[in-house]
């Protein structure tokens, strides 16, 4: 039922495909250029721009989209550009949105990378990085705590967390294997929980 509503929600979407593609590219280029640090920060910005301001996507559909991209692998920012672009303008929309979104960081990092070797020799930059590295550690500890509050909800979760950490740290197991095994465990554990 909701499918039909969401399809009719595309009324405000421009009919001119070239214009729409350009708008998608431009929107994600601007969003990509201003979301420092990347990640989930981009979601409310996309919502403001495409749901509230332009009205191209219905609020409920946007929530569904964001729920969907969080349940598949991939970089959040990239995923959100792809799904929005695809829903509004098909495969070419997905391509142009992701291109627009990734371009600013691509260019900025290219510039930094081309100067980095020279930059790196200045004592002041070296000292800055000596301080920034412990800062990164603090952000990671904080991220682990706040993710833990959301992601670990029951004893099974604690078990998966502990065994995952042991496997990574002491057994030096490849992260991809750890992810696959834990997904498989999740399937078995939560599937059985559902049946009862």
């Amino acid at each position: 039922m909701t499918h039909k509503e969401t399809i009719t929600a595309a009324e405000k979407v421009p009919k001119n495909k070239a214009f729409l593609l350009w708008e998608l590219f431009k929107t994600f280029f601007i969003l990509g250029g201003f979301t420092i640090g990347g990640g989930i920060v981009m979601v409310p910005l996309i919502e403001k721009e495409l749901v509230k301001k332009k009205g191209w996507i219905k609020a409920e559909e946007f929530i569904d989209m964001m729920a969907l991209i969080q349940s598949v692998p991939g970089v959040m920012t990239v995923n959100s550009a792809i799904i929005v672009g695809y829903r509004l303008a098909g495969p070419s929309g997905a391509m142009l949105s992701v291109l627009g979104g990734a371009l600013p960081s691509f260019v900025v990092i290219l510039v930094i990378a081309s100067f980095f070797v020279r930059f790196n020799q200045y004592p002041i930059i070296q000292k800055f990085l000596l301080g920034a590295r412990p800062g990164v550690v603090a952000l990671l500890i904080y991220a682990a705590i706040s993710l833990g509050k959301k992601g670990i909800r029951d004893k099974k979760g604690i078990l998966i967390f502990v065994s995952g950490l042991l496997a990574l740290y002491f057994l030096n197991i490849h992260p991809i294997i750890v992810i696959i095994v834990s997904g498989f465990l999740g399937y078995i554990i939560y599937h059985e929980g559902r049946v009862k």
């Binding site: 959301k150 992601g151 670990i152 998966i160 967390f161 750890v178 997904g183 498989f184 554990i189 939560y190």
Partner: peptide, 9 residues
């Protein structure tokens, strides 16, 4: 459900 806790790990 299984991947979320391992993301924390």
């Amino acid at each position: 459900g299984g991947i979320r806790p391992v993301v924390v790990a």
